[in-house]
Design a protein around this nucleic acid. Structure first.
Lengths: 198, 198
DNA sequence: GTCTATACCGTGATAGAC
DNA sequence: GTCTATCACGGTATAGAC
């Protein structure tokens, strides 16, 4: 089927989302205008509305895609030892999130700009991810491999600690991502009562 | 000296900052209008400009006050043992920050809305606070009390972990702040190689 | 110090030509 | 599918009366 001249739906759509992601992360949702997004893409404002019904949907789609990708990408081998599963989580979380800085910024900063019903859906996805870490901690406690008094608190503390890498890590910094990951694994392992070798 | 009728400078000024703090934390700097702040205070928009030259200064003042208060409030007894100093830091950080939720939200979310020169000044204050924790960790390593391989990374990881308490702790929740603090102290102590008693 | 009124501009979103 | 033009609204900030 011949393509209509000037039809770029399959190219422009992704470019609109990419531009919105970059700009929202940089300046914040409220501070970024549809005109600015259009300029970044290289089209006029009106054209954006072929790809999103409104600005809010653009934000929601970005957040939903990100959270879904996290859930899909994390493969937890429940047959492995709790310690190995936790190690894998630490490596996965750092690697995945440091490669998606913009999405992570938006996910932590722009939740308050979601309309209530959208907020609820994103929150559910975030909790589901937390639950996967907590399941690992529970297993470790049940098997006597971990020593910690509250799996929920440890879950939240570990995720906060690991996500914090994004706020300072730079590719050309003093330490490689592998080295950083090793240090964090050491701290996480100790905090749950494993004595990791580094 | 008699007060001019209608003069409320000393009352209205703090109220303006309090309203801005609350609203910025709730909706984000860019999303909050001067009209909204005025309405919260109970004055008209024009009156706000008796207390701030512009919206940006309002944000900067809030951030600067908060960071200065943190620095002033943290009393580190360098004569004490590294372990005790670290314990004190953990207790202080959690207590201080959970009591200033709005300021903490703004401090982490609105840095990007500061004009460059303002940003630099706030960043310097933030780093100075980090340095105080790092000094404790260095002392602990030097004295052989702590076992960790990178004081900078441990500093950042600990602060991220502790500040994360703010995102979920509620006064009427399952655990008291004292219990939460004890759990975090346990994790922090272990992560730096102390085996804390809980 | 506060008010009312207003200047001036940028915003999200839409209509209709091509 | 994209563009141009436009609408209605709300934004920051200021001027001048009281």
């Amino acid at each position: 089927m011949a393509r209509t001249a000037g039809s770029h739906s399959d190219i422009t759509g992704p470019r609109v989302r990419a531009a919105a992601m970059r700009l929202f992360a940089q300046g914040g949702y409220a501070a970024v205008s549809m005109r600015a997004i259009a300029a970044e893409v290289g089209v006029q404002v009106g054209a954006l509305y072929n790809y999103t019904p409104d600005k809010q949907s653009l934000l929601f789609d970005l957040l939903q895609s990100h959270m879904s990708e996290v859930m899909d990408a994390f493969d937890d081998d429940t047959a492995a030892s709790p310690s190995d599963r936790l190690h894998h989580f630490v490596q996965f979380h750092i690697a995945f999130h440091t490669e998606r800085r913009d999405a992570v910024v938006i996910s932590s900063m722009e939740l308050r700009n979601l309309e209530p019903e959208n907020f609820v859906r994103i929150e559910a996805l975030r909790r589901a991810y937390e639950d996967r870490l907590e399941a690992i901690l529970r297993a470790g406690v049940a098997q006597g491999d971990f020593d910690l008094s509250d799996t929920k608190i440890s879950t939240l503390a570990i995720i906060a600690m690991l996500t914090g890498v994004n706020t300072w890590f730079r590719d050309n910094g003093r330490l490689s991502l592998e080295e950083v990951t090793a240090r964090y694994w050491d701290m996480v392992a100790r905090s749950v009562g494993i004595n990791a070798q580094v």
